[in-house]
Design a protein around this nucleic acid. Structure first.
Lengths: 185, 185
DNA sequence: GGAAGCATGTAAGATGTTACATGATTAC
DNA sequence: GTAATCATGTAACATCTTACATGCTTCC
């Protein structure tokens, strides 16, 4: 009955303009999914629920050559709900889950080769991610209407760089570490 | 029927030695919870399931003055399951959810004062977190048996520093940004 | 007298993922 | 022809969080 962060993400997306569930799903995947992933089932579910609550208004749009679609637009109530949420001081803490760090934490069970391989693969992923995000930043440019999206991407870049710096720092330590001899059977 | 990452975290914790569900919950909260939170219901549930699968062995321990407890120890099968998981190349990607970044992404709906307040509170949190983790790193010291825990804490420090650097970078940009005039009603 | 710590669990609910189901059009 | 894109939804499942339930001991 109460709105979740996911609900507000949907409302927020519609603050850029009316769109269909399909379009919203794509848009989320290209933007906010890095720090708030939403599956399409969730999108369709939320839209239906928000419509019932009167926070969004749905309109069927007929299309030739393409399947008909249903677009959603924020109502005044929807805008208000979004703004109140943005203004509210209560905010849930970041949560992150990293299987990689779990494995590092259990490093005492691994051979040195295993550990270093794990670290290097992770660092490679971070390097790729950094590049990808730098591309995003570049494509967003300096225009003021993209500045917030750009800010979120810039944090991603910084975090990726933090990972790379960290990997360089601890690699030598892991190289001279005591580990289990040999690999798994 | 198949083991999740959470199951393997429980197995991994027991690789440090036998303990009860209560102790394991505390241990997780002080260590791995930063990158893999587990609630106590999950711990008790997993332990029961792993016992049924023969991966851990439970023993009742009577205590005077304190309630009796049930400790769990890894079986050979449990150790093997843990090591196979650590060796497996398939690893789920990091996932993170940040309500903060969602709000930044919808910055066009906020006043400048709101945005800057949001940013500053977040940066303060990151500064506190950095300090806390530096304390953890210091308390772990140089001993080789704590090197993996230390490595995970060091990444936390780096990430917190990345956040602080980012906040400094974008604050001036937000200061001269176009935003909605005035606050919410 | 009351709060905090020790100790184990169950139940209910919220949230999120993946698979299933369908069907037209366009581009290769 | 066949894969990809457009388009909407349901169903089943997995996972995770929060509240409920109980009771003794120690410390303030």
């Amino acid at each position: 009955m109460t709105l979740t962060t996911t609900s507000h993400v949907v409302l927020g997306m519609l603050s850029f303009g009316p769109m269909s569930g399909y379009e919203l799903t794509q848009f989320v995947a290209r933007s906010v999914a890095n720090f708030w992933p939403i599956s399409k089932s969730q999108v369709y579910g939320e839209l239906a629920r928000l419509a019932e609550l009167g926070l969004v208004l749905s309109t069927e749009v007929e299309q030739e050559k393409l399947p008909d679609k249903r677009t959603y637009a924020l109502t005044d109530q929807g805008e208000q709900a979004l703004d109140e949420w943005l203004a509210s001081p209560r905010m849930e803490a970041d949560r992150q889950r990293s299987e990689f760090l779990v494995r590092i934490f259990f490093g005492h069970r691994m051979s040195r080769a295993q550990l270093l391989g794990l670290l290097d693969r992770y660092a490679e992923g971070a390097a790729r991610f950094r590049q990808e995000l730098q591309g995003v930043v570049a494509s967003l440019g300096q225009s003021p209407h993209s500045q917030y999206a750009r800010a979120t991407a810039l944090l991603g870049v910084r975090v990726a760089e933090a990972v790379l710096g960290w990997a360089e720092e601890i690699r030598p330590e892991l190289e001279k570490s005591r580990t289990r001899r040999g690999g798994r059977r």
